[in-house]
Every structure is written in C-alpha cells, then in structure tokens.
C-alpha cells in the first residue's frame, strides 16, 4: 500500500488530504479483501459445479469407481491443519484488536506453521493416491480440488506471513511500545490488512468444510 508521489516533486499534502487518502487506502484494503473473496468464490464455485455436474451426469457410469477414495487420513489432516490456521488467524486478529500484540504474533506464527504443514501434507498426499487421475469423474475433480487447495493454502499462508513480518518491521520502523496499535498511518493500514487476511482465512475455512465433505465424506 504505497504511494507513488515522488519525493520532492509531489504536492504538499494538507492534513485533510492525507487523512482522506489514508481513509481511501484503508477502504481499499477492506473492499479489496471482500472483492478478492468474491473472486475466489467464483473460482471455487467452478470446482464445486464441476463436481456436482459430473456426479449427476455420471457418464459411462464412471462418476466414481467402487471403493474409490482419496487418502482419507491425509485429507482430514489437511483439513484440520487448514482449519487450525484459520482459527489462529482469526483469533490473532481478535487479540490484536483487543490490544494483545504478543497473542497475535504467537497465534500467527503457529498459524503459519500449521499452514505449511497443510501444504506439505496436501502435496505429499498426491504420492499416495490409489487411483489414476483420469479413472473417473471423481478422480478428475479431485485433482482439480487439490490444485486449488494448494493455491488457497499458499495464498492464505503467504498473506498471514506477510502481516507477521510487517508487524516485526513496524516495531523497527516506528519504535515505541506496540507500534502496531498506534494511530500512525502505517499501523492503521497494517490493522486493516490483518482484518482482511483473517476474513479471508474464515472464508477458506468454510470452503474447506465444503470440500472435505465433498471429497472425503460424501
């Protein structure tokens, strides 16, 4: 969230203008986070649509072979790790709001760890597949789901990690005790970013429930 106004050449912003632009930036993070979720919803919805379309078409009686399952234990492990990350991200954001930066950081770094675990297990699961990707509609949509889930984990964990790294650097740049909670523009932007990130993780968790139900339960 940077500004492009060049040093020395730019106009001298009045306090009102600075305030206005700060509000616009915070608003952009807020609405950008929501719009990104909307965008991501359409992406995941394509996968859900494909799943149910192929399931109801059942072409060649090949929606799913008998006893065909993606490795269930791995799947649940990914789901649990992702949900944990989501919970930690949201918990951290709530604690940050309440004023506990340490809680935010501990929860956040734990979340990054669980996110990375989810990523590794999700990739590792691919080596344990008991079916050929093209053997059925289920197998195909499963591959699509795995690719999207990897993308979700990477995006979510990346976002979480950047907020934590940002928090550390803010301490260096702003100094003082708990600069994350100050009224400094950078701190305000930081908090808006954390809120959008936590919101996105909440969204991913809901998606995770849906996909786990689709691929490991149903």
């Amino acid at each position: 969230m940077t500004d492009m106004i060049e040093k020395g050449k730019g106009p001298t912003s009045t306090p009102e203008e600075r305030e206005f632009e700060l509000r616009a930036q915070i608003g952009s993070i807020w609405s950008g986070g929501r719009l990104f979720i909307g965008m991501y919803t359409f992406l995941l919805a394509s996968e859900v649509f494909s799943y149910f379309y192929l399931r109801s078409s059942n072409n060649g009686m090949l929606w799913r072979l008998p006893h065909q399952h993606a490795p269930i234990a791995y799947g649940w492990a990914v789901f649990i790790a992702m949900s944990l990350t989501a919970l930690l991200a949201m918990y951290g954001q709530r604690q940050l709001k309440k004023g506990s930066v340490v809680d935010f950081q501990v929860a956040g770094w734990t979340g990054v760890t669980t996110g990375l675990i989810a990523l590794i297990v999700q990739i590792w699961q691919l080596t344990k597949l008991s079916f050929f990707p093209g053997s059925s509609g289920y197998a195909s949509t499963y591959m699509g789901f795995v690719v999207m889930n990897i993308a979700s984990i990477v995006i979510g964990t990346y976002w979480l990690e950047t907020t934590l790294a940002r928090s550390l650097r803010l301490r260096k740049e702003l100094g003082g005790e708990n600069p994350e909670l100050s009224m400094d523009p950078m701190a305000q932007l930081f908090r808006a970013n954390v809120a959008s990130m936590a919101y996105f993780w909440g969204f991913l968790a809901i998606g995770g429930v849906l996909f786990t139900a689709m691929f490991y339960v149903m």
Binding site: M61, S130, F132
Partner: peptide, 16 residues
C-alpha cells in the same frame, strides 16, 4: 445399464 468394463479389474486398487 452397466459399466462396460471393470476399471477395478483393469487398474486394480493401484495406479497403473
């Protein structure tokens, strides 16, 4: 009304 060939038979429970 039936699957024309058994993929389980073809592929077994493992990757081909």
């Amino acid at each position: 009304k039936q699957t024309p060939y058994s993929t389980v038979e073809l592929y077994g429970s493992k990757t081909p």
